[in-house]
Amino acid sequence: MKFGIVVNEGPYQHQASDSAYLFCKAAIEKGHEVSRVFFYHDGVNNATKLTEPPQDDRNVVSRWSKLAEDHGVDLVVCVAAALRRGIRDENLAPGFRISGLGQLVEAGIQADRLVTFGD
């Protein structure tokens, strides 16, 4: 089955991004496909490579990047939300790309299930 995921909150502030990541990991382990994760609202803050969590904490951003690298998950950051919050191509972590809201709608159309994680 093909899953689309929406993440509405930034890392470290809210559990949404962690829950979404763990859901994606479990889905992939069960043999499902996570075709796209769409980051919207403050969720775009998951995409900055400038993040530096303390050594003993998980790295939310690089965890997403690795998921993209290992499983071809398309990590899309909403352009309007990103520009509002200072997320640009220059500071984008690997695996993420900036695009329009059409990518969210497309995920809704093409995926068998769309799951939203937010506040």
């Binding site: 919207y40 309007a80 329009g100 809201l101 059409g102 969210l104 709608v105 497309e106 809704g108």
Partner: peptide
């Protein structure tokens, strides 16, 4: 506000 933006795009699809 951001929900409205998606609504408009969805209609365009």
């Amino acid at each position: 506000l951001e929900a409205l933006e998606v609504v408009l795009i969805t209609a365009a699809f």
